[in-house]
Amino acid sequence: MWHKTVAGFICGLITITLLPSSLIHFYRDLSAISAAFFITVGLTGWACIMTYCYGAGSAKAAWLRGLYCAVPAVLIYLIAFFT
């Protein structure tokens, strides 16, 4: 259960931080609306990703579920950061 907690917490935080950040890197003018989006939808998303990880049957499955969310967010962020 501790693995599920850590996987959900870390992958959730990475996802909800990097998605609005990518939006800011793509469109600088949207920084204010992205920050608001981060506060409202992002926090709920964090709890949802944690719940998704708790639904997994094992620690490995929980980390995989966490990575399903975090890896695309990291890739989008990298593209946004370097373009």
């Binding site: 909800i16 931080t17 990097l18 609005p20 800011i24 981060f38 962020y77």
Partner: peptide
């Protein structure tokens, strides 16, 4: 916590 992470990632 999350404002700090946002500050590093976005700005």
């Amino acid at each position: 916590l999350f404002q700090a992470s946002f500050g590093f990632a976005a700005f």
